[in-house]
Design a protein around this nucleic acid. Structure first.
Lengths: 330, 330
DNA sequence: CTGAAAGCGCTAACAA
DNA sequence: TTGTTAGCGCTTTCAG
């Protein structure tokens, strides 16, 4: 592997000149530039990023911590982040934390040792004190789905509560008169908010009763069993709002299995807007702007890295109702 | 951030001793070890990985190139690879190539500059000559779904052809008497093999005719339209084998939309074994051992990195038929 | 068992 | 506009 030294020798200039040429900073004469370019070509020289990083420049690498890339929400997020990162010249290190704070801490440590320039963390479980190591080294952090107030930390969230409300309003508008809710883990803030939104919109109606809320875990299986239990209690329900799309899918299975057809007997709305196009009927959902979230996360991170001053530290993104077959009016 | 020098000073030993302690190689007296440990604790010292890498050790980072993490097959692969990598102490850099060879080359370059210790490439489009850069620097490569014979390159594939055969045999066993096939992109080797398997099992039967094969692109939408076209030609078909699960899902939608019920009217088999548990009815499929593939990929890569001699360079993994509702006997 | 010292490849003053 | 040189933090001979 050719080094900068090899290039400088062959080009008859000093390494400093080559370095300046490479980084397009400082002066380099036209002739020098040309010969350097030629030599680089000839030697097929590629700067060693590790050496660059050590010498004080940035590693041009960021860390991305997600609970589990298997959960369909995260590939979409990861993809948009990776695309944006790539645009900025960054490479992404992927970490699956399983919402396990031990793993989270370990990964933060690893990423720190690898001198990443910044970290994007999507985590339900992370707490401000876990970030102190990062703060101390003033590593920029973008947090998704979680809000800590602090500078050098940007928080990105969505209108979860409003989304819950929207879901119920939509079901009502489509003619539902008894709406059940499958809520996600209560340990997760955004999950609680979605449920609060459901309650905002249904409390005070004549059909609402607390037993219309089933408790589940954001998985298809979980949604399925929760739906079964809700049906046992309320066989006459005609609308379901599940706090994420996976549970909604599970709920649909349970409904269909018990002979109900969707949307004529029961209408279903999910949350997230992961593209479940394989479903039949297709699922109406309260969509998060996932790609936009990812892109903004990366933009903000770069802003933090570059120490720009005009960074919005807390952004709340709107959600949108996507109407599909699962809530079509009879 | 504390450095090895800080530690050595405070511990009253040389950096060499600290380094030996850190790497558990060479001799370090018990007392020295103890004080060093204490100082490290006190200073909360963490070795700088970048410096380590520069000094000649490995970067403890690998690259993972996939076409698109959005395709549900790859999160599963990525997850198992990341888990295995983590177990070995490696971090994973994720790259989405979109099967675009320009992007592929760019990423290989980037990964090379970042001094990754090895690369796992899942690509339909990559060609041996794209790997010469890697070969020259003798960077270990594990290739998935693609076979090049070469040392320092391990190739992992599955029994695609046999899988296609299995699918048809299963459909026949379940009572189908006219089976259509939705094949994937012909540019993809494994896709062609699956179709070959279909042909192996159906050629010579009394119902087979070439127009029972629809051409598509591995997407849900593609499967949907291909199915519609096949139905126009053969409204009486009663079995479908799609070369991947996404197309199978699309096919199911088309079938249901045209008033056919699954499995009573038409039975459907997919390929891949991505966990589409949200589907109803659930999809029978020829499953690849995705997690095992990922784990083996990482194991092999580490073997190559460590220059172990007992590395199998070409492995073909078995596929298994997973029977679900979509092919239940009437 | 330990330490001094020479790099790894590159950047960034600083001097010319 | 260019070159010299001192690091960046760590590993690794090679002497002791």
């Amino acid at each position: 592997m050719a080094t900068i030294k090899d290039v400088s020798k062959l080009a008859g200039v000093s390494v400093a000149t080559v370095s300046r040429y490479l980084n397009k900073n400082g002066y380099v004469s036209k002739e020098a530039a040309e010969t350097i370019a030629e030599v680089i070509e000839k030697l097929n020289y590629r700067p060693n990023n590790i050496a660059r990083s050590l010498a004080g420049m940035k590693s041009a690498t960021i860390g991305l911590m997600v609970p589990d890339i298997l959960n369909p929400f995260f590939p979409e997020l990861a993809r948009s982040i990776e695309d944006a990162a790539n645009g900025y010249g960054y490479t992404v290190m992927l970490c699956n934390t399983d919402n396990d704070s031990v793993k989270e801490r370990k990964y933060i440590d690893t990423l720190l040792q690898k001198q990443v320039d910044g970290i994007i963390i999507s985590s339900y479980t992370i707490k401000p004190e876990h970030l102190t190591g990062l703060q101390k080294q003033s590593i920029p952090v973008v947090l998704m789905d979680n809000v800590f107030s602090s500078d050098s930390v940007v928080s990105l969230t969505v209108e979860n509560r409003r989304g819950g409300e929207l879901a119920v309003q939509h079901l009502l508008a489509q003619g539902c008169s008894k709406i059940a809710h499958i809520c996600g883990p209560l340990t997760i803030t955004s999950s609680r908010e979605r449920t609060a939104g459901f309650e905002d919109a249904s409390r005070g109606t004549d059909w609402f009763t607390p037993s219309l809320i089933g408790y589940s875990d954001f998985t298809v299986k979980g949604g399925y069993s929760a739906m079964k239990e809700l049906l046992a209690l309320h066989p006459d329900l005609d609308g379901v709002f599940a706090s994420n799309d996976l549970m909604a899918a599970g709920a649909m299975k349970a409904l269909q299995e018990t002979g109900r057809s969707i949307p004529s007997d029961v209408k279903v709305v999910g949350f997230d807007g992961i593209g479940l196009e394989m479903m039949n009927p297709e699922l109406s959902t309260i969509a998060q702007p996932i790609s936009e979230l990812g892109k903004t996360a990366m933009d903000s991170l770069v802003g933090l890295i570059r120490e720009e001053s005009d960074i919005v530290t807390d952004q709340v993104f709107p959600v949108t109702l996507i109407k599909k077959q699962s809530t079509r009016k009879n």
